[in-house]
């Protein structure tokens, strides 16, 4: 009886060790690692925004997105614009969503991340008419 129980327990432990990476970040670490990954795309987002401004001069405001970080590869997905917290035009928001989708944090975390991040877009000031 004892040996049966022991084997079962050891098997349970092994199974949980195999199915889980144990790289479980604290919420702060999760946020910081994700923020670093997102920041790597800021130049691309700015370039996209510059392009938007050509057709919509003065377009600016805040874009807030919610997303998930999956556990297998640490990839950011399910990116959705938080419309209530977004003031920038849709085209500007798209600059964020299309650029951050597919980003990954390394190593992937054992836990799914649910992140909320914001970007503030500022258009250049129009030259004053004097």
């Amino acid at each position: 009886m004892k040996s049966i129980l022991s084997v079962a327990m050891i098997a349970g432990c092994i199974s949980s060790a195999v199915g889980c990476s144990y790289a479980a970040r604290s919420p702060e670490n999760y946020r910081d690692d994700t923020q670093a990954a997102l920041a790597s795309k800021n130049d691309a987002i700015r370039a996209c925004y510059d392009g938007v401004l050509k057709s919509a001069p003065g377009a600016q405001g805040a874009v807030t997105v919610n997303f998930e970080v999956e556990t297998e590869h640490g990839t950011i997905g399910k990116v959705e614009v938080d419309k209530a917290a977004t003031t920038a035009p849709e085209a500007v928001a798209e600059c964020v969503t299309k650029n951050i989708a597919g980003l990954a944090i390394a190593p992937p975390d054992a836990r799914t991340g649910q992140g909320t991040f914001s970007w503030n877009f500022a258009a250049p000031k129009a030259p004053s008419k004097s």
Partner: peptide, 25 residues
């Protein structure tokens, strides 16, 4: 075992500490 299971799976919720500032070129 439950400790291991607790570290594996589940959801961590976090939000950016501050918004990224993107100023047009």
């Amino acid at each position: 075992s439950s400790l291991g299971l607790a570290g594996c799976g589940g959801v961590t919720t976090f939000a950016g500490s501050s918004a990224f500032a993107i100023a047009a070129t």
